[in-house]
Simulated scan of single mutants.
Amino acid sequence: MVLPAAAEPLRVATWHVEMQRRGPGLLLRDILAGEDPDVAAVVDVIAHVSPDILLLTGFDWDLKLAAARALETRLATAGAGYPHLFALPSNAGLATGLDMDGDGRTGGPRDAQGYGWFAGQGAMVLLSRLPIDSVKVRDFSDLLWADLAWGRPPMVDGQPFPSPQAQAALRLSSTGHWDVPVILPDGGRLHLLCFAATTPVFDGPEDANGLRNHDEIALWSVYLDGGLGPPPEDAVVVMGNANLDTSDGEGRQTAIRDLIGHARLQDPRPHSAGGTEAAVAQGGANTGHAGDPALDTADWSDDPAPGNLRVSYVLPDRALTVTDAGVFWPVAGAPLRPLVEGEGLPRHRLVWVDLDVPG
């Protein structure tokens, strides 16, 4: 793949905003009311960083994208409009009618295709200033985990966990896996490989969540290797919440290491001074960690485990030129510090990468 010499700057970002509510329509209500500090902080952060393309994870989905459109209206008012919105129905909260976690009951949030109290809770939405080629979108969200030859669904005593029926019905994606092409200024395409993986904890010795997290991340390596049909010939960017650190915390870390090390991808290593400061100033948030705290994207310092971790990623194609990258995490005393501290504000940080794309 050879890109033209002429290029234009493009800022691509992802953020796990934790804007999920306990019932359908409540997020829309809160955005429209204009009184929630977490909504205001999200708007202010996005307006400040001003990415051209932004994948929000942990954002409630609704059929007409009413909540996403309400947020975009707030952003436009703040000078950061996004004329193109995209989201597909999510596996999060999608009812199965089966006992999916082996607790002997049905109808709970862990009995859905992906954790959620209602359909679309904690889903994904893509905001873009570039047009989206919706006709060429590929959605892998309905792939059944047990049907994937390379997948490793959990087994206990040689039997599918929690039951053959449940495992046969379970999709790999806990939220979604999308290949979304956006149209570049020169008419070419940039493929955004968007996802949000389940957490690798909150399970039992069968390691159901750990195995699923591994395979959700591995799906993109399989796709880029041609295992799900021809991969994009155009440049790609893998982006989203992998819920997995490369070296610290729980989970099967080979998955994210293999993805970062894929021959088609590069790791710009977005960083912040705030992440480094938090590891030192908050009394052991990263005690025993091997990773660089400057790369952390989630502030879990208020919990003795797992500490602050790098869990959100933007991994561009090696054919693209990276000019800058960062994590929005202001240090203490900085003017924008209040946007990342305070009760109810997201614990995750926005991750951005600046690219040169064909102009």
Rank of each mutant, 00 (worst) to 15 (best):
residue 193 L to S: 09
residue 333 G to H: 05
residue 20 Q to I: 07
residue 156 V to S: 12
residue 114 G to A: 13
residue 191 H to C: 03
residue 124 M to I: 08
residue 66 A to R: 15
residue 305 A to V: 15
residue 139 D to S: 03
residue 257 R to C: 06
residue 14 T to D: 12
residue 248 D to S: 08
residue 222 V to G: 01
residue 55 L to D: 03
residue 177 H to I: 01
residue 224 L to A: 08
residue 180 V to A: 06
residue 184 L to T: 01
residue 23 G to W: 10
residue 295 L to F: 14
residue 341 E to D: 04
residue 108 G to Q: 10
residue 125 V to Y: 14
residue 328 F to N: 07
residue 52 D to F: 04
residue 268 P to W: 15
residue 101 D to F: 05
residue 273 A to Q: 11
residue 35 E to V: 14
residue 309 L to P: 00
residue 353 V to R: 03
residue 284 G to Q: 13
residue 9 P to K: 11
residue 42 V to W: 00
residue 2 V to W: 04
residue 80 A to W: 00
residue 40 A to M: 08
residue 96 T to G: 03
residue 284 G to D: 14
residue 318 R to Q: 14
residue 320 L to M: 05
residue 303 D to R: 15
residue 322 V to C: 13
residue 249 G to N: 03
residue 25 G to I: 14
residue 27 L to G: 04
residue 101 D to C: 07
residue 339 L to Q: 01
residue 281 A to P: 02
residue 202 F to S: 07
residue 72 E to I: 07
residue 164 P to Y: 07
residue 178 W to L: 11
residue 85 L to C: 08
residue 114 G to Y: 07
residue 216 E to D: 02
residue 177 H to L: 11
residue 158 G to S: 04
residue 108 G to T: 15
residue 111 D to V: 09
residue 298 A to Q: 15
residue 323 T to A: 03
residue 153 P to A: 08
residue 253 Q to A: 06
residue 229 G to Y: 04
residue 57 T to V: 14
residue 278 A to H: 11
residue 186 D to W: 01
residue 233 E to Y: 01
residue 23 G to V: 12
residue 212 R to N: 05
residue 277 E to D: 10
residue 245 D to W: 00
residue 255 A to W: 10
residue 60 D to Y: 02
residue 353 V to N: 03
residue 200 P to R: 07
residue 343 E to D: 06
residue 118 F to G: 04
residue 116 G to N: 02
residue 114 G to Q: 07
residue 168 A to H: 04
residue 176 G to S: 05
residue 154 P to T: 10
residue 2 V to T: 14
residue 211 L to S: 06
residue 355 L to Y: 01
residue 208 A to I: 05
residue 201 V to L: 15
residue 124 M to W: 06
residue 14 T to E: 08
residue 339 L to K: 01
residue 185 P to G: 11
residue 46 I to S: 03
residue 218 A to R: 13
residue 154 P to C: 13
residue 135 V to Y: 05
residue 165 Q to H: 08
residue 316 P to S: 13
residue 79 G to N: 09
residue 268 P to L: 12
residue 238 V to T: 06
residue 57 T to I: 11
residue 214 H to I: 00
residue 77 T to E: 15
residue 38 D to A: 14
residue 212 R to P: 05
residue 24 P to L: 10
residue 174 S to V: 02
residue 235 A to F: 05
residue 44 D to W: 02
residue 132 I to C: 07
residue 278 A to P: 00
residue 90 S to C: 09
